[in-house]
Every structure is written in C-alpha cells, then in structure tokens.
Amino acid sequence: MTDRVIVTMRGLTKRYGELVAVDHLDLDIYEGEVFGLLGPNGAGKTTTILMLLGLTEPSEGTVRVAGHDPTREPLAVKRLAGYLPDNVGFYEDMTGRENLRYTARLNRLPPAPAEERIAALLDSVGLGGDADRPVREYSRGMRQRLGLADALVKDPRLLILDEPTLGIDPEGVREVLALIVRLAREEKRTVLISSHLLHQIQEICDRVGIFVRGRLVDPGPISVPELVARGQSLDHIYLQYFQGGD
C-alpha cells in the first residue's frame, strides 16, 4: 500500500429536501487499498458513491478523484473508475459477451484488444463457458460476476463495488470475495466496497469506515489489521454504535 491519496472528500454533503443523506463527510482513500464502506441501508453509502462518480451533484463540499472534480470533469473520473452498481442490470437479450462489448465500445477501446480483454475477464470471473448465452438465462450470482467483469473492462485504477455480494448464495459470495481480493492484491487496484455484511468486509478490507445516518462514526476509518491485532472484530465496534445510538 502506498500513501498516495486517490480519493479525497471534504465536507461532502448531499441533501434531498429535508433529508440529509450524506452529512459533512471527510475521507481520504489511498491508492492500492481496499476500503470498506460499512453501514445499514440508507446510511448514505450509495449516495457517496454516486457523488464520487459524478452521477449526482453534492449539495456542499468537494470530492476529488485522482485530482479530478467529478461534477466538472465527469468523463475523466469515469475513465479511471469502474463501477458495479447495486442491483446491477444487463441487456437481457444480449449475451454476456455482447454486454461487455458495449461497455468496451463506450470506453472507446480498440476492438481487437477489447475482444481479448473481454474473453480474459469472462474467464477470470468463471463465465467463460456461458459468455455466449443471453443474460436472461443467467443466475443472480452469474450476473453479479458479469457485473464485476463489466466494471473491469475499462481497466480501472479505482474499482467501486456497491453491495457486490447482495443476493447471492454463500458459495457465490466466497467466489466474488476471492475475486475482489485477487484484483486488489495482484493487480494493485484501489477498491472501494460498500456492504452491510460485517464478516465479508473484515475479511477483505484494509480499512473500514462505518456510516451512520450520513456520517462517518468516530474515530473515522478503522484499520482492520490493527483491529485484529487487538483481538477485536468489527462486530464489537458496530454493535457499540447501534446499541449506543438506539
């Protein structure tokens, strides 16, 4: 892990009318780390991700992704960030390969290398044999893995995964997590992963930020190795906040 910062958020706030979805968030994410956004549903995880990608405008505060402002230079940010949305969807009548090919074209990858890359990615997520079946025949877990391949088509420096293990069976979860770890460690990508599943986050993340009602709880991001060294687990910390809060 290097100490170069890839994502900076300062005083980041998003309001939907009266509701404050994200409340003055200050956070740095370093190049090459796996950062977990942990929190209950509706804590502002997805909103934060959307602001990172320039898909929604912050009401207040700033975000920088590799020095770019997602609101003003969305294309620069979207070129370097791969995104797996929660409830990812595909064009059902197209095959897995065709869906990825569309993404490659939107990223203006030259056709021949793109084909090779798509084939390699499909193999690496275990969809090599199903690549030419229409997506409507895919199971939930297969879609999720295809989504991961899709986010990787553009060879992103920053990989943003929103609830990547939602709705897949335990075996599928293990596969997806192993894949994410491999991506981060071997290919040196920065991974930002949002989830509400403590054990998964603890298994694969370097640092974790716990979100409650749009705020990052004190004392800010928690280093997982340190936590483990102290003999604690995320459960303790997490429950502490929710029992204390409610």
Partner: peptide
C-alpha cells in the same frame, strides 16, 4: 432504469 442498466451506462465515460 428498471433493468438497472442506466447507472452502469452512465458510469461509462460518455456525456
């Protein structure tokens, strides 16, 4: 939007 492809599409580097 309902198929969940819109956010994936808009996260690609296009206007």
């Amino acid at each position: 939007r309902n198929r969940g492809t819109l956010s994936r599409l808009l996260s690609q580097p296009i206007y």
